[in-house]
Simulated scan of single mutants.
Amino acid sequence: MDRQPHFASRTRAAYDVLAADYADRFADELAVKPFDRAVLAVFAELVRAQRAGAVVDVGCGPGRIAAHLHDLGLSVSGIDLSPGMVEQARRGHPHLRFREGSMTALDIEDGSLGGIVAWYSIIHVPDEHLPEVLAGFSRVLAPGGYLQLAFAVGDEVVHRTEVGGHPVLLDFHPRQPDHVAELLGQTSLREHARLVRQPDEEGEFRELSPQCFLLARKAR
């Protein structure tokens, strides 16, 4: 952990501060987001059909996505930079395995996973580090395995010094789907499907930009 890039150390520190409030706020988010649930259901069905290995939720936060995938029949665990988030995940979902880890240095055996979910976790990765992150995802996926990404669509980096009343230093990197697909093409991953939905402008989980769900598959 001590050798993590500066952005990762800063992200970890921010989410340690936010962990408890974040876990409370987003615990029931999927219940009001039918498109998000549909994307995860398709991912789970495809991974189950491949019988290619377990799934890891990279940047799992408090574990809500991992728990949902478990309910959909997947063998899933989670990793997160933030010890505070890992603590929240273990507390909320004691039947699942969560540990500290970084997407910039995945401590996972090559070709061992049937699937990876990075659900709004690449949004904190600067552009110059994203190719190595995607290459790492490709490395640990088994041939035919699936990668499910979720990220905000846009071009301008958002710098936040406060979230939910907490002082933090946190950058959000929205991305264009075509650019992410192009970067995936530089690895052994290829775009399999994508869904872009308009921002949810009502309710507790209001969004400011469109949201992209991009599914990629590793070549056999």
Results as ranks from 00 to 15, higher is better:
147 L>H: 02
63 G>F: 06
88 Q>F: 07
85 M>K: 04
2 D>K: 15
87 E>C: 15
84 G>A: 06
94 P>G: 07
36 D>Y: 10
24 D>R: 15
139 R>A: 03
195 L>G: 03
220 R>G: 03
163 V>G: 01
51 R>L: 12
180 V>S: 02
118 A>W: 07
174 P>Y: 02
193 A>Q: 13
91 R>V: 07
114 G>C: 09
161 T>H: 06
103 M>F: 03
182 E>S: 12
156 E>V: 08
160 R>C: 06
112 S>C: 07
93 H>S: 05
118 A>K: 14
119 W>H: 08
75 S>H: 14
35 F>M: 08
26 F>T: 01
119 W>L: 12
157 V>Q: 07
188 S>N: 10
75 S>I: 15
156 E>T: 02
31 A>E: 13
110 D>N: 09
150 A>G: 15
160 R>I: 03
146 Y>K: 14
46 L>Y: 02
35 F>V: 14
195 L>V: 11
50 Q>K: 14
81 L>R: 01
46 L>E: 08
144 G>N: 12
2 D>Y: 07
177 P>R: 06
14 A>Q: 05
1 M>Y: 00
194 R>G: 14
17 V>I: 14
81 L>K: 01
102 S>I: 10
88 Q>L: 09
110 D>P: 11
115 G>D: 00
81 L>A: 00
172 F>C: 02
97 R>F: 09
154 G>F: 02
16 D>A: 07
41 A>E: 02
21 D>N: 10
27 A>G: 03
109 E>D: 09
204 E>F: 11
62 P>K: 09
117 V>H: 02
188 S>T: 14
198 Q>V: 08
147 L>C: 04
31 A>M: 13
215 L>I: 10
4 Q>S: 11
57 D>K: 10
28 D>K: 14
191 E>S: 09
117 V>L: 10
48 R>A: 08
157 V>Y: 00
94 P>N: 05
153 V>R: 05
209 S>Y: 01
31 A>V: 12
94 P>E: 05
199 P>Q: 09
17 V>Q: 09
156 E>K: 13
206 R>K: 11
211 Q>Y: 00
217 R>C: 03
83 P>W: 01
103 M>I: 07
86 V>E: 01
19 A>F: 12
198 Q>P: 12
190 R>S: 09
17 V>A: 06
181 A>L: 14
101 G>L: 08
214 L>M: 07
167 P>A: 08
173 H>F: 05
57 D>G: 04
16 D>L: 15
167 P>Q: 10
166 H>F: 13
